[in-house]
Amino acid sequence: MSAETVESGASAAPRKGVSILFGLTLLGLLLFLWLLLGLATNSFWTPNNISNLLRQGAMTAILAVGQTFVIITAGIDLSVGAVVGFTSVIVAWLLAAGVPLWAAIILTLAFGVLIGAFHAFGIVRMGLPPFIITLATLTSLRGIGLLITNGSTISITNEAFTNFSRADFLGVPSLFWMVIVVAIPAYVFLHLSRFGRYLFAVGSNSEAARLSGVNVHRTIYLAYILSSTCAAFVGLLLASRIGIGNATQAEGWELQAIASSVIGGTSLFGAVGSVHGPLLGAFILATINNGANLLNVNSFWQRIITGALIIVIVYFDQLRRRSAR
């Protein structure tokens, strides 16, 4: 190849600064939405509604963080919604079978690990595209869940478990605390540890990463296991919130998670993403839904607005990237 590559180093903006700026823009958008809704409605800034908003956004936020790990490796995890529904069945089933709560929680999370490992196995060993293997588990996990429950739901009678999602801690809903519990280690993992760097390197050029001594297979296992485990965790939270296990729950949540991640600046081509981005993305989406409800906007419109927002935000993100070149 003798293409002359041209030095444009001086004009390329330092990457980290831009990423912080983009984060601030999203935060600005979120605060702007909150301000706007506060002015437009009387009920937005009530403790009840804010708690509700934080609860709504929490589960998508956790899914989106897990999803982001996978997308950074230039993959995709379509199964997360199904994993949520499936694991809600698992935990309800275990509790109904008399398994102690702590063991039920650990076993459910272990199912998340197994599902993620299966995805990575399909990608690494069988050479299946991530889209296909996770699409396959998306449908089959719901099927397995329905087989277990015979098409019905399993009620959860363990009150300690179901009370958790309604509880507050320091005035903040416990579900939102769970976001923090996930986000802090996720941040350390992605931005401060070498495994985070490896995720980016594999997403950018897996062959170059491999020749630099990065264990590419292990990195892919890590990403998919984290995503599925986050989803299993959300399955626990959902089961706690609705008090039942049902395999058809969380329909379409995978798309919510991907949308949150993308709104948060993650590139579907891989190697670009953060932890704070998808969190903000998830709460922006939650705010739009919440605000639309308060304003009595038809729920069909909510979907349209969400779609339009994805286009606008990602378009501006593209513009920013192009000008940074």
Binding site: S204, N205, A208, A209, L211, V272
Partner: peptide
């Protein structure tokens, strides 16, 4: 391009 560098990383 293919083996040496992660081009879209710093």
């Amino acid at each position: 391009r293919d083996q040496g560098l992660c081009l879209n990383l710093p």
